[in-house]
């Protein structure tokens, strides 16, 4: 497995774990607390920061596991990354319609921000899945 493929495997795992922890913490308050009183900003920022830090750690571990291949990126890696990111971008474009609709319908910021966060998570997961399939099954 090349360095770039290892990173592609790590990204959706990190995204889904941080999103699950964030969702449990924030949405777990929903039944009893009005959304305008749920403090979601700091947990969301923490989730984003933790995602970035976790990916840096994952990249370091991937590099340590095969030092001779660390940071090697050839045309196949570039093409697969470009393909995955393009698909992820399309997903983000479609998913962004949800927060746009919520804004137009004048929903609370809580729902709009979380819909946008969901769009980013979905985009990242789909992009990485496309890359993994391309690495494993062919491109």
């Amino acid at each position: 497995m090349s360095f770039e493929e290892k990173v592609a495997w790590a990204y959706p795992v990190v995204l889904l774990i941080t999103a699950a922890i964030y969702s449990t913490h924030v949405f777990g308050q929903l039944p009893g607390v009005p959304v305008t009183e749920i403090a979601y900003v700091r947990p969301m920022i923490m989730a984003l920061v933790i995602t970035v830090v976790a990916m840096i750690i994952a990249a370091i571990l991937a590099a340590i596991s095969a030092p001779s291949e660390a940071d090697k990126k050839d045309e196949r890696d570039i093409n697969i990354n470009r393909h995955g990111d393009a698909v992820g971008g399309n997903v983000l474009g479609v998913a962004a319609l949800l927060p746009l609709g919520l804004t137009m319908a004048e929903f609370e910021h809580f729902w709009i921000a979380n819909a946008l966060y969901l769009a980013f998570v979905a985009s990242g997961v789909v992009a990485s899945t496309v890359k993994i399939v391309a690495y494993r099954r062919g491109f």
């Binding site: 497995m1 090349s2 493929e5 291949e69 050839d74 196949r76 890696d77």
Partner: peptide, 10 residues
């Protein structure tokens, strides 16, 4: 040729 071993395998 300056690529990864995995690319040659693929």
């Amino acid at each position: 040729i300056g690529v990864t071993r995995q690319t040659i395998i693929a």
